[in-house]
Design a protein around this nucleic acid. Structure first.
Lengths: 356, 356
DNA sequence: ATATGTTGTGAGACCGGTCTCTTTTTGCTG
DNA sequence: CAGCAAAAAGAGACCGGTCTCACAACATAT
């Protein structure tokens, strides 16, 4: 009862010092684990601290040491399996090195990302991992660098920024997936992404502000071109942001005079939406339409048929990003790099062989 | 280049004050947005701050105000869709109230949970949301309360603790699901959970240390009892912690002399594993075995047949927990409560009607 | 004109740690 | 037992904000 009445000012080193009958400095040395203190006094202080239930104020500690022991992570959407797995990888790497993680959600919105970054800098995080929502606006990230806070980009690279980035091998992954479809006899291939369509239609690959998506599209196009297929841009669609939008995109795609026979989904959320769209249209996979999705998400292995996917090894990506950031924080001398985590195509049952 | 050479000590209020030719106190008033300052001086200070790219040190701010503006969340496993959705709800509630969220993973391990709680308290979070891994060890949580930090339990309640808890209506949910199975003619029903089996076998409901699971089991048993079915504990299985364990559990369950005809999965991860087990055993749902899972996870709606589930409305649970915690932080006078978020049974295709 | 109040600004204590510098104690050697 | 170095303990500045209090300047009341 008297808990709430008595807000009970937290126990400080000074309190412990008094109880142990030593100076504040000595108590601090014991409690902070630095300097030299005799065994006898150490015991006294520890006993006093235990009796008083002393808990160090990390805030104060961070303030004088200048290190907070936490790394900030700004992701697009924790609810997305891609990011939650990545966060797990980052957390594991962080914990191993004695760091903690503070997570902020940008919802893939630039302004939210910006204020999240500002806030984390304000909290004096020791380092920052960011999934930039747009690769064309880099002021806030440049600011991070000027503030002297180590930064690692995740999933998307920004070459102009001269900073480490951990990504998948998106271009190659898309090429591999696309080639596979072509080898199976497909000639009309569509690529579907959730990127916001600027002005409604697809205009120019170079203008896709998300580098991961851009590189996948480039890979897709290059594989089509290499196979001598005409009009590689014709079936590229953006804007599959929710189920309704996706339904529309898919319906329009398939009512083309020459509809695509295979779909490549830019991520597992889009993949799931496409799957549901096809289901609601009464189409069968792979008989009516083939598909490949990115990410080995839960749902992809329990559908009928199970979905052929590009395995992105997101956990490793996250772990690598975490490790890289920590190396930076610890001032390990390293060249700025783009680290690519290789992917692999996992063949399951969603691609039909046709035309043979 | 000179970025890294010049670690560039951060700009402080004192720097801004000097540049604006005012006292530190005045600059602080402008920058901190408190007290009264004339318009003219305000402009001067703001201009100086902008020129110097001043960023407040939130650490220092927190130290003097005693409020950090962050709430700590300790979850079992962010990778689990249940928790990532909950975190989203919590984050949204927090952001709305101007708080930020710091997340720690316990991996459902008690020691990890304990140290995470300690750490967050050390970071002087303004409040804490915890998913207690065990409802029988409460020392560390009692410590939170003694430290005067508001606490809200999530998903699991601990009556002895006299603290707010936001949970599902687990007992009712289990009853509803079980009754549904009974109504469809099932007489031998199994309940499968991922809880660690203490000593291998299932002994006593009261000893299940996770209150959510315990209440679900209680509901399950009570529905069976109410229907006059014999031996309600006979098909309760714990320990479905990974795919291999689950395969074993399911295989043993179905090779019983009188095997169950329906399975109730304690959460969506177990549900998925059960689904895969059944698949690998070549059994068809619902013809050979019926099943119901908790949580409207992605995978449950795209299987054949889609899975009948208990919809837990986790986002709402998270949001509610966040709001409740914030109310506590802001000292809103409220009675300690257990808030139950109601669930509903979503009928899909994984339950067969038999014996009629 | 003097008393009273209001408003804006400055000086400096404070939060709870760390850490440098000084002083005291201890132990060893000649 | 003096002499000295090394080890242990203490005193107090500092980190970068907030915030209380003192004071100055000016407006209003008497």
């Amino acid at each position: 009862m008297e808990d709430s009445a008595h807000p009970k000012r937290a126990v400080t080193v000074a309190d412990v010092a008094k109880a142990a009958k030593v100076s504040k400095a000595t108590a601090a040395r014991v409690l902070g684990g630095y300097g030299v203190v005799s065994a006898k006094i150490t015991d006294q202080v520890i006993a006093a601290a235990a009796a008083l239930e002393y808990r160090p104020n990390e805030l104060a500690r961070s303030m004088s040491t200048g290190r907070s022991g936490i790394i900030g992570v700004v992701v697009g959407d924790i609810e997305n399996a891609f990011f939650s797995l990545a966060v797990r990888g980052i957390s594991d790497a962080a914990r191993l090195a004695g760091f903690n993680v503070i997570i902020a959600n940008s919802g893939e919105e630039f302004d939210a990302e910006k204020s999240a970054v500002d806030l984390l800098i304000g909290k004096r995080v020791d380092g920052l991992i960011v999934t930039p929502a747009r690769c064309d606006s880099i002021d806030h990230l440049q600011h991070v660098r000027r503030a002297g806070v180590p930064l690692v980009l995740f999933d998307r690279a920004i070459p102009e920024l001269d900073v480490d980035a951990v990504t998948g091998d998106d271009r190659d992954a898309a090429i591999t997936a696309t080639r596979h479809l072509i080898e199976q006899g497909h000639r009309r291939l569509a690529y579907v992404s959730a990127m916001d369509a600027e002005g409604g239609g697809f205009t120019d690959i170079g203008r896709i502000s998300n580098s991961a998506v851009r590189e996948r599209v480039e890979g897709f196009v290059s594989a089509l071109t290499e196979a001598g297929l005409p009009n590689p841009l014709h079936y590229i669609r953006l804007g599959a942001t929710d189920q309704q939008q996706t339904d529309g995109v898919i319906k329009r795609l398939l009512s083309d005079s020459a509809p695509p026979t295979a779909l490549l989904a830019s991520d597992s959320l889009v993949g799931l939406r496409i799957f549901k769209s096809l289901q609601s249209l009464g189409l069968s996979i792979p008989k009516d339409v083939s598909m490949i999705s990115f990410l080995d998400a839960d749902w992809t292995s329990v559908t009928v048929p199970p979905i052929t996917i590009v395995d992105q090894r997101v956990y490793e990506m996250g772990k690598l990003a975490g490790e890289r950031l920590i190396a930076r924080i610890e001032r390990t001398p390293l060249a700025v790099e783009r680290l690519r985590v290789s992917t692999s195509l996992v063949l399951r049952g969603s691609v039909a062989t046709i035309g043979r």
